[in-house]
């Protein structure tokens, strides 16, 4: 119990610092005056002053921080200063889009990786080849891979519409691109773990007792490898989050990643703050869940 509490406490502290850091980081940015950017052409100093006080940008840093925290607790994330939309609404709308990409990607990574790992273990002859493919594909930078897939499948073979967000088929290419690097990781871990486990005594005992091969692998081996797989997937989540930036950019997928890229390129402070917050929260949450699952699966960890 203390293990979980401790982890939770640490997460809260991390969260607090993330909020603070993101707030101050934005104000140190040499990017430009958000107020001027909002107002566009033909305005006077008076207009600028008025808007600035309206947004509360003319008060001391500490007061602004206080207002910011208060707003956050109410659930108000502010409005974009470039395009003037309500940030929370926009994030709510886009989150499921990115989430669906991520979920499909993780599923592909999991199944694809395990299958590849199994293939490698049991068909030793082509093992090294698969190994090479796995490492090779996992190393290709996400944005480059995305471009290759767009070119190859979209232009050359004309298999799928290259952008847009409606319908199932559209989900596949970007998810696939996202999934490939994590899939390589999963495959590699599967191979390592399977080798480890299959060499152990209790497996030989199972065989001796007459269990069929498939059952041995399925029941004993994979289950034990599960822990490492979970941990690997959780690490891959970080890769995934970073990857969504590029994948959404290339495929024009209107999710959180695209929102983030635009906000960062345009120095859209309120949006950057919100994205930073959401990213950190998801990250911390996933870590928390992983630690929790870890604790469940292997109580020894909790010491």
């Amino acid at each position: 119990m203390t293990y979980h509490l401790r982890k939770f406490g640490q997460s809260l502290i991390a969260l607090f610092f993330v909020v603070t850091l993101s707030f101050f980081l934005i104000y140190k940015a040499p990017a430009g005056d958000p107020v001027k950017t909002m107002l566009g052409f033909q305005v006077t100093e008076e207009d600028v002053q008025r808007l600035r006080s309206e947004l509360g940008l003319d008060q001391s840093l500490v007061i602004q921080y206080y207002i910011y925290c208060k707003r956050l607790l109410k659930g108000n994330l502010g409005r974009s200063i470039i395009s003037d939309f309500d940030i929370r609404q926009e994030i709510t709308r886009r989150f499921p889009l990115t989430l669906s990409l991520a979920i499909i990607a993780i599923l592909i990574a999991l199944f694809g990786g395990v299958i590849l790992g199994l293939l490698n273990t049991f068909y030793r002859s082509i093992g090294p080849i698969i190994d090479f493919i796995i490492v090779g594909i996992g190393s290709i930078p996400v944005f480059y891979l995305g471009l290759i897939i767009v070119w190859f499948f979209g232009y050359w073979l004309d298999l799928f519409p290259i952008s847009g967000y409606k319908g199932g088929m559209n989900l596949l290419p970007p998810s696939l691109v996202l999934a490939l690097a994590p899939m390589a990781n999963v495959a590699r871990i599967t191979v390592i773990k399977l080798d480890q486990i299959l060499g152990q005594d209790f497996i030989r005992t199972a065989y001796a007792m007459g269990f069929p091969r498939r059952k041995v692998i399925g029941k004993f081996a994979l289950k034990n490898a599960l822990l490492s797989l979970v941990s690997s997937l959780s690490n891959s989540f970080a890769l995934l989050l970073g990857g969504t930036f590029f994948v959404e950019y290339i495929f024009g997928w209107p999710g959180m990643g695209l929102l983030a890229v635009d906000a960062m390129l345009n120095y859209d402070y309120p949006v950057i703050q919100s994205i930073v917050l959401i990213t950190a929260v998801s990250f911390i949450t996933i870590n928390l869940i992983t630690d929790f699952v870890y604790g469940l699966v292997d109580p020894r960890v909790m010491e």
């Binding site: 610092f17 940015a29 970073g242 960062m264």
Partner: peptide, 24 residues
């Protein structure tokens, strides 16, 4: 520890992009 924990809360590339944007 606190500082590193904060940075640790982000995927590597997100942190780097944010810092790059902040440094110009």
């Amino acid at each position: 520890s606190l500082f590193s924990l904060t940075v640790w809360s982000f995927p590597f590339i997100v942190a780097v992009i944010a810092l790059t944007a902040a440094f110009g």
